[in-house]
Design a binder for these strands. Structure first.
Length: 326
RNA sequence: CCGCCCUUAGCUCAGACUGGUAGAGCAGUCGACUGUAGAUCGACUUGCCCCCCGUUCAAAUCGGGGAGGGCGGACCA
């Protein structure tokens, strides 16, 4: 796979393609980042962007993980103390998951976001951004409560972070696109350069297959799930034997294979009793999806296999989490 | 500061006028059917009725106080 394909594989959107191609032409030492509100336990949503970071590391880029403690604070996630605690746990889990510790710079937001220069730039952004615009940028990120002033500051800070962390590429879920677009529009007015952005897809809810809505809490698989819990969750997932279920629904089982399993494993083996045809082996998502579609691969077997591989992905983080918690 | 509205199941809400310790839809759980899930049937669970004080034999409901949330307070319409 060439560098451009590696950098952009499984991306839902790239802004702009020209800029990313330019990056791909000479990726060594270029800096890419994702910002996360600290959370004590990583879930599949975190791991989706982490997979992209691993791709980028493989392409030779430097990775910056922003542990966005100030953002979490502005978003009402607790006291600074609590937030920093969870940030440490988060960092350990990322490393356990597979981010190369010596190729990854973990930065706390509070380490630079409270500096004078940053604050003055922030105020300048406040001066030139309408509340309407800031609020719309946050709509996908904040809860559905009435917006607070802090919620309007939040996306402005994200825009500035991209400059202050000296980045070459901003990565995030598709829910971050409006914030990133805000940054592309506003940074040049402060005399800074807008950076290219890469957005990962939003995976559909496991049990319902509904993907488009920004529903907050469905069933998700996380680092603290036991093997049994994981099997149970995967088994209860929505999985019609097709890539394109009716309506706006997606097939979450296939999505997890595509975005979580195949990027991290070269070969996926489906262990299947002789009665159903014996074992199968896949080297690409496409062939697996095609077999599910044709009926060659039964959803129940796909689920069992998915659970096995997800469990393997999660195991190191789960172990780390247990160590941390004693 | 002034005014109006809201607060009942996980969610959206009904019930309040005409007091008798609570309901619907959705969600969820469990079975049946499918070699998965869903759909479809069948069954089931769920509550400091925002808090305090008062009236009453009896308060989600009436009276008083308080808390939290929402909206409005130039002109035009």
């Amino acid at each position: 796979m060439d560098t451009y394909d590696l950098i952009t594989r499984n991306a839902a959107e790239v802004v702009t393609d020209e800029e990313v191609r330019e990056l791909a032409a000479d990726p060594a030492g270029k800096r890419a980042y994702v910002g996360y509100e600290p959370s004590g336990v990583l879930h599949l949503g975190h791991l989706l962007t982490a997979n992209k970071l691993i791709d980028l590391q493989e392409a030779g880029m430097e990775i910056v993980v922003l542990l966005a403690d100030v953002h979490a604070y502005l978003n009402g996630k607790g006291t600074f103390e609590e937030i920093r605690d969870t940030a440490e746990q988060m960092q350990a889990q990322f490393v356990a998951y597979g981010l190369e510790a010596d190729q990854t710079e973990f930065v706390y937001g509070s380490a630079f976001q409270l500096e004078d220069d940053y604050t003055l730039d922030l105020h300048e952004l406040e001066l030139s951004t309408t509340m309407n615009r800031a609020q719309r940028a946050m709509a996908e990120i904040a809860g559905d409560e009435t917006a607070k002033v802090s919620h309007l500051v939040y996306p402005l800070m994200q825009s500035l972070d991209i400059e202050y962390l000296d980045l070459d590429l901003a990565v995030g879920g598709l829910d971050q696109r409006k914030v990133h677009m805000l940054h592309r529009e506003e940074l040049p007015d402060l005399g800074y350069e807008a950076r290219p952005c890469l957005h990962t897809p939003i995976v559909a809810d496991l049990t319902s297959g509904e993907g488009k809505m920004s529903s907050s809490e469905g069933v998700t698989i996380s680092m603290e799930d036991s093997t049994e819990q994981l099997e149970e969750k995967v088994n209860s997932a929505f999985c019609p034997p097709t890539r394109e279920p009716e309506g706006d629904l997606e097939n979450p089982v296939l999505e997890l294979f595509e975005y979580h399993v195949f990027p991290r494993f070269d070969e996926v083996v489906v262990e299947r009793p002789e009665k159903y045809g014996g074992d199968l082996s896949y080297e690409s998502y496409e062939t697996l999806a095609a077999d599910l579609e044709s009926g060659e691969l039964h959803p129940a077997d796909a689920k069992g296999t998915l659970a096995t591989y997800l469990d393997e992905l999660i195991a190191p983080g789960r172990k780390k989490l247990r160590e941390i918690r004693g």
